[in-house]
Design a protein around this nucleic acid. Structure first.
Length: 874
RNA sequence: GCGGACGUGGCGAAACUGGUAGACGCACGAGACUUAAAAUCUUGCGCCCUAAAGGCUUGCGGGUUCGAGUCCCGCCGUCCGCACCA
């Protein structure tokens, strides 16, 4: 009778081989069924997969397998985000070519991923470092260029002195390079840009429609794009000292114009430069600003500093009112016009500034219910709602009214045939600088000719391939100091010219891989419009929040750019987005403070107290806080070890079971063991059922109470698990499966004494076993195949359709309602499920328990919530 | 500083649109089987006071409601994002 233990080491590779042989997960582009595209963010081939990958891909696989069972043509591909700096760092450190290093890592990680039993279509595998991929990226770069979506301009860039490369703004964190951690310097370079700002408005507005994205991500993108409505105002300068007669500013608060106390311009504003030419002191001040520029200010909350240029600007509503013009360290040239008017009463920065230089302030917005005479601003600017005061024709207006009035007046006023004021929508978002002075990236397909300028590489010459023979001895870009690579003839005039030696930001690579997956074999163009438009958008995209802004925003832009150039037909690449939580683990430290790996720690539990000891030395180990798994804190668990000792199914099950998927999950030994125990328990139950019921079980005409109870449990679980997979509530799915398993065990236990099973119970048990196998299949696919086989089911569970719950069995004939008296539960009544309010009331009134609890108090009112609860008010 | 999310037993958590708080799992306690252990099974498990009955309980304080973990207001705490964006 004893069922043999389930052995994942034998079963798992066996079933994977069967799936492969039958090409179960390969998706045909000519499949006519409705498609469903599940995608997890593709990994960087760093060397080995980690638990974060396991969690990410386990989640995606549940969705993919479930949707496949639901009859969709599921696209679930995998590839490699294979360009990037670590390959070059490895090249420097280990004298290994980046390509070799990358492909070796890919090979390792592919094997690891395959051991997880993921339902991936490996025939579509791609690596972004492969010329067959990046040639299309080069083609699209040139198409974008033709369509005016690419710009080449000098720009101040963030220069990482350690990595010797340019960083995007987004890659600078607290003034330091996101990867190297080095203090970033500002340099001026000529760079290639994608004109993402052309789509600022659209990228902003379309967020509204991304209803299957986390609110958090949409908000982060919205803030990043930073749309604001305001007014450009041209202030006349009192004297034309530096060949400029006016100063244009941008403001979102034109209503506060009568509270203006000063003007301020950025240290690199043209007017500041002009003024500095005549003033060594100002020149020195500007230099000072540059030095304190990027890094320190965030840390030190830099003091507001200014330098009076001596210039005076004329107030647009009063020619006799002039304002001093300062160069100020807190004004950014990159935003607006690099110049502002300062209204200290209603802007904290401006207030700090005037308080430092003794310029005073005039409040012009007074809170409702406060006497304007006594309303004084000292240290805290007033930025809330109110009515206009001290503002001549604006007095008494609300802020929006005043804004409108100022805009209207300044728009209609002209100076030199131009309106003084212009409404303007401004964005915080900047263009996307894609040039990187690196080797291991996609070459930018441009040739620089002294006569013809920048010349696109002709289509026929694509791809521009990276040369293999490069050296990483010298700092800087190996492409640049390669002896011959950059020397070519100009495609236009044939004269000697040189290649662009910059390569593209790797975020470009990941901005369209999801589109390439739809037809990765295609050679003549990046995509096949028919195919790409059929599969895209991705129905469910899953990855970490760390990509909430960069990768997702770039991809949204790139998809639009692909539409503009005819490579795709849609705007939004990801219809559904899910950001999963991290895998965290306890940390352990030895007495000397060094971190200790979990494998070297033995935990002894004594009641609720836990103490750690070193496995070998027995020395006490301090159990520390729970942190994200990281090599530096050594609190990592290697997926390979887990899969080797427990099997992939156990690892997957545990990753899905404990926490809601968007929250962090704590990896614990006890948790994995619990998962492993469940694997055996389920196998044992299925085995017993298979043994006792045999493989073919006919339907019974009637069901006894025990059998009916089990059937109801099966169909309820089926219903609930389906609904929860749709909501990505994997932890809830697991709970439902446990509940059903308990019900099966109970039924089996009840039937244990009987020599032969009654036919109704045999049917119910076999049905329950089949259903639980199918419910478990998306999460533990190998075990499910083994169970499926044991139950004598035909074919593979991996190709079976999702069962349909019997609505009859989801219904109950009678329900037990709690009865509250004044909101406290005092009794229960059992009533027919379809009982109406009146009859429930009658049953409640006559219930002995209720009468007792009422204790002679008169009933004032009875509230019946059908199927839910009864509340008696006395 | 600005913006956002969250706060439920010893722990991870459930509770769909307000309707029996704590499903399910982990840990732990008791018991069975065993020479013993592991595995497995049975059983208990929010807190307080109990002989029983009761009372209290979703970070804290108010409010709305017949009824609040859920809605509203004000605090406290934790985490995340942005950070001189005019």
């Amino acid at each position: 009778m004893a069922v043999e233990r389930y052995n994942p080491k034998e079963s798992e590779p066996k079933w994977r081989q069967v799936w492969n042989e039958r090409k179960l997960f390969e998706t045909r582009n000519d499949d006519t069924r409705p498609s469903y595209y599940v995608l997890e963010m593709f990994p960087y081939p760093s060397g080995r997969i980690h638990m974060g990958h396991v969690r990410n891909y386990a989640m995606g696989d549940v969705v993919a397998r479930y949707k496949r069972a639901k009859g969709f043509s599921v696209l679930h591909p995998m590839g490699w985000d294979a360009f990037g700096l670590p390959a070059e760092n490895a090249a420097k450190a280990n004298k290994i070519h980046p390509r070799e290093w990358t492909y070796a890592n890919i090979a390792t990680m592919r094997t690891q991923l395959q051991s997880m039993g993921l339902s991936l279509d490996w025939s579509r595998e791609l690596a972004t470092c492969d010329p067959s991929y990046y040639r299309h990226q080069q083609k699209m770069f040139l198409d974008f260029l033709k369509s005016g979506l690419v710009d080449r301009k000098t720009a101040k860039v963030n220069w990482d002195p350690v990595d010797e490369t340019v960083l995007a703004n987004e890659q600078v964190i607290d003034g330091r390079g996101w990867r190297s951690g080095a203090l970033v310097e500002i340099r001026e370079l000529t760079q290639w840009f994608f004109k993402i700002t052309d789509y600022g408005q659209e990228l902003h507005d379309a967020l509204e429609g991304l209803t299957r994205w986390p609110e958090k991500v949409r908000l982060m993108q919205k803030n990043w794009i930073g749309r604001s409505e305001g007014l450009l105002i041209r202030f006349a300068l009192e004297s034309n000292t530096f060949g400029q007669s006016e100063l244009e500013i941008y403001t979102t608060r034109p209503d506060t114009l009568f509270g203006a106390k000063f003007m301020a311009i950025a240290p690199d504003h043209p007017l500041a430069k002009a003024a500095a030419a005549r003033s060594p002191e100002l020149q020195a001040f500007i230099e000072e600003c540059k030095r304190t520029g990027t890094a320190q200010e965030a840390i030190d909350k830099a003091e507001k500093l200014g330098f009076d240029t001596g210039l005076r600007a004329v107030h647009p509503f009063d020619p006799s009112w002039t304002l001093p013009v300062y160069v100020a360290n807190f004004i950014l040239m990159e935003y607006g016009t690099g110049a502002i008017f300062g209204c200290p009463a209603h802007d904290q920065r401006d207030l700090d500034f005037v308080n430092k230089y003794g310029l005073g302030n005039i409040p012009v917005v007074c809170p409702e219910g406060v006497d304007p005479e006594s309303f004084v601003i000292t240290d805290t600017a007033y930025v809330e709602d109110g009515r206009m005061i001290n503002s001549r024709f604006l007095d008494g207006m609300t802020i929006p009214e005043a804004k409108e009035e100022v805009a209207r007046r300044l728009e209609s006023e002209t100076r030199g045939n131009q309106p003084v004021g212009t409404r303007k929508v401004n964005f915080r978002l900047r263009d996307w600088g894609i040039s990187r002075q690196r080797y291991w990236g996609c070459p930018i397909p441009i040739i620089h000719c002294a006569d013809c300028g920048t010349v696109p590489v002709p289509d026929a010459d694509l791809p521009v391939k990276l040369p293999d023979d490069v050296s990483f001895e010298k700092p800087g870009n190996p492409l640049d100091h390669h002896p011959s690579w950059k020397h070519v003839a100009c495609p236009n005039c044939g004269k000697p010219a040189r290649r662009e030696t910059d390569t593209m930001d790797t975020f470009v690579d990941s901005s369209w891989y999801f589109a390439r997956f739809t037809d990765p074999w295609r050679t003549e163009s990046p995509t096949d419009r028919k195919v790409v438009d059929r599969f895209l958008p991705v129905d469910q995209y899953i990855g970490g929040v760390e990509h909430a802004i960069l990768h997702l925003l770039y991809s949204r832009f790139f998809t639009r750019a692909m539409k503009a150039t005819g490579h795709a037909g849609l705007d939004e690449p990801f219809a559904g987005l899910f950001t999963q939580g991290m895998v965290v683990h306890e940390t352990y430290r030895a007495e000397d403070g060094t971190w200790v790996e979990p494998g070297d720690v033995r935990i002894e539990a004594n009641g609720s107290e836990r103490r750690g000891f070193h496995v070998e030395t027995g020395a006490p180990i301090e159990i520390g806080s729970i942190e994200k798994m990281s090599k530096s804190k050594k609190n990592v668990v290697d997926p390979d070890d887990i899969i080797a000792s427990y099997g992939a199914d156990t690892a997957r099950w545990f990753m899905l079971s404990d926490s809601p998927p968007d929250r962090d999950v704590i990896w614990t030994d006890e948790g994995v063991q619990g998962a492993a125990r469940f694997v055996q328990r389920l196998w044992r139950l299925i085995g017993e059922i298979a043994e006792r019921t045999g493989n073919s079980v006919g339907a019974a005409a009637e069901f006894g109470e025990a059998a009916l109870t089990l059937r109801k449990a099966s169909h309820r679980a089926l219903h609930a698990v389906g609904a929860d997979i749709e909501r990505l509530g994997f932890n809830r799915c697991v709970a439902h499966i446990y509940t059903l398993t308990n019900a099966i065990a109970k039924a089996l236990d009840g039937a244990a004494e009987e020599a032969a099973l009654s036919s109704d119970m045999a049917f119910a048990l076999h049905e329950a076993a089949t259903i639980v196998t199918q419910l478990v299949a998306p999460m533990m696919p190998h075990l499910a195949e083994e169970c499926w086989h044991a139950l004598g089911q035909p074919g593979l569970v991996g190709e079976a359709s999702w069962p349909v719950a019997d609505a009859e069995l989801l219904r109950d004939d009678s329900v037990t309602l709690p009865v509250q008296i004044n909101g406290k539960k005092r009794a229960e009544v059992t009533v027919p499920a379809d009982a109406d309010t009146v009859s429930v009331e009658a049953i409640v009134r006559s219930s002995q328990a209720v009468i007792k609890a009422l204790d002679d108090r008169p009933i004032r009112k009875i509230i019946v919530v059908p199927g839910r609860i009864v509340n008696v008010v006395v």
